[in-house]
Design a protein around this nucleic acid. Structure first.
Lengths: 342, 342
DNA sequence: ACATTCATCCAAAGCGCTTTGAAAAACGAT
DNA sequence: ATCGTTTTTCAAAGCGCTTTGGATGAATGT
């Protein structure tokens, strides 16, 4: 059933039927009802492709996921982010268009989305300290919102970020307050903006208390369980081991815990662990009481809000760049305790 | 730059330019080259919306993700599946359109996709033992491939599945061979087809050896770390505790391990653990040597293959339902050992 | 020389919707 | 009745592509 068939059936023009269904005022209430009922009865739903062509709007938001052979960017937060974003999209009749591309093709993918008019806007994931995507999108004139920030970007753009620096500063302070001074950092890749900021927070907290930063205690790599395990094992087996570890997420934190327990040490007593918790729905930090002491901020809420911000921008409800900086919540769990006295 | 502008520029008709770019034979090689060069020089890329309307093809595949308040369906395998599928899509110029919908709206979402011609086909995720989506999609005439199977579906359809029954049968056999008889099962929800089959494999293996199935050792719930932990803790603290646990994935297996180690027991000695490993890129089962003994099958490869199967179906390269049943690989890690003698 | 084929190109129709500009109908006021 | 105004409806022109059904001219055959 298409528009012409429906309008023929009703003895009305396509114009009137279209207007009736799209809520335009210049149509009699009685006919509007008649049209609505007929549309329902015959299960008429306008063809998306035709509608897009006529309106110039696709009602879809692009997400470009670069896939590299080196390391994985399809990271664990992605599915929760899109769950949140998708929820926001659904409320306004949008949905999301995901392109998986080889990372060498990333710029080309954004150009294609812009030139071919496939999406109304895009979300930028995992911004780097230096990120070429932001100037590119600005040049292309495609609306976008960045989940995170890119420190070295000179021009303003819309973003939503967690205050990663503050989160790690507070986590480090928390451990310092407990008497720890040998505090390790298991970070993500530090070309990622969030990881760079987390390191800054960690370093600032140490320096504020006059604790020298020991490079042998800081590691940056893929945020996996085996990495958390391997680096912790290595540090614990070395001279002057750390009494506390800050991990970039729950996943490496589990590896940290495995290394600690494997050595017969007790988490929260011999070695304290704090991590960043993205509050992933399928990876809860315990039920009720948290397993790990953590700085927490829901990536799902971030997805929802980023989606809203982008749709606001597309609809012209906001003009100019908009920023939101969210503070992570510090939740105290069973994985931290006073520094052991030697 | 659109087609008309480009053709005006070249002094050719839109027909010829379109044909030149789409590789039709009725255009002189010299003009084809001239057109291709002009298109490149002026960065012409055909408008997706117009192309879709004209061809009736959207070059996109739908993925409907139901979101429920009860429990999470945006599960941990999703992002790896779409990484694989997206890779396949990209090779043929498709991309994926993801709709997140309230689970009460799931049927309506498929109807909308079909009626509005928004996608060329869909992938069905997480099929249930009784799944209404399959007959619905057949009625709607929308091409689809199921990742998994739905046991009670009477009509044939295309699917790709891991042999879950065999995987859990072999895992259980492996433990029985090591002398275990108190073998617990930490399963996913058993209305899910894969979970039902896994239980069947587990039960069959026990019954073949004349080991009675103890209901207090089988649990089915959300596949989270805290669930693995809580159920294992409960079983270990009860009379006649299990000496081995089979977990539905790496995530609950980590909870199992936590409960074991928290009690001062040693994994692979006091308690053996086997799990199903979806070979998620961000959650590797160790580097090199596996941490957990596991039955492994890559969900990413499954995504890639499902995408290919669906595109083959849409392109008419296959006719009629196609099936693939993959055997999981049994990898022996450090988490299993002979049953302790009491 | 002419008819016939073939290669190459084009004008125009169509995909199914929205939207512009105008007409028809209904209404109220004279 | 008549005129102006408002409400309601419609025909037709896009949106930017693909594709059908010729047209044109060159090449071939007799």
């Amino acid at each position: 059933m298409n528009l012409r068939e429906l309008s023929d059936l009703l003895g009305l023009s396509q114009t009137t039927v279209s207007r009736a269904l799209n809520g335009y005022p210049e149509v009699k209430e009685a006919t509007r009802i008649r049209v609505a009922e007929a549309a329902l009865a015959h299960n008429y739903q306008p063809n998306t492709r035709a509608k897009s062509l006529a309106t110039g709007r696709t009602m879809s938001i692009g997400h470009v996921i670069p896939l590299s052979n080196q390391h994985e960017m399809v990271n664990l937060v992605f599915s929760d982010f899109i769950a949140g974003a998708g929820e926001a999209y659904a409320r306004e009749g949008y949905d999301m268009r995901v392109s998986v591309v080889d990372d060498s093709q990333e710029a080309a993918a954004y150009e294609r989305l812009a030139n071919t008019g496939t999406v109304d806007g895009v979300i930028v994931h995992g911004p780097l300290v230096n990120d070429a995507r932001i100037p590119l999108l600005q040049k292309l004139g495609l609306p976008f919102v960045v989940h995170g920030r890119s420190s070295n970007c000179p021009t303003p753009y819309s973003w939503l970020d967690v205050n990663n620096r503050s989160a790690f500063l507070r986590a480090t302070d928390f451990l310092l307050d407990l008497g720890h001074t040998r505090i390790a950092l298991i970070n993500g890749f530090e070309q990622m903006d969030f990881a760079m900021r987390r390191r800054a927070g960690y370093a600032d907290a140490l320096s504020a208390r006059g604790v020298a930063l020991d490079p042998s205690l800081t590691h940056a790599f893929e945020m996996t369980e085996p990495f958390g395990y391997a680096k912790t094992a290595q540090m614990l087996d070395a001279d002057n081991p750390p009494t506390a570890v800050i991990a970039s997420s729950l996943i490496p934190a589990m590896g940290v815990r495995r290394a600690v327990e494997e050595r017969g040490l007790v988490v929260g007593k011999d070695v304290s662990i704090i991590c960043f918790d993205d509050a992933l729905s399928y990876l809860p930090n315990g039920e009720g009481s948290p397993i790990f002491t953590a700085t927490r901020s829901s990536v799902r809420n971030a997805g929802r809000r980023c989606g809203e911000m982008l749709m606001d921008q597309i609809a012209g409800r906001t003009t100019g760049p908009v920023h939101e900086l969210w503070e992570a919540e510090l939740v105290v769990g069973g994985s931290t305790g006073p520094a052991p006295t030697r």
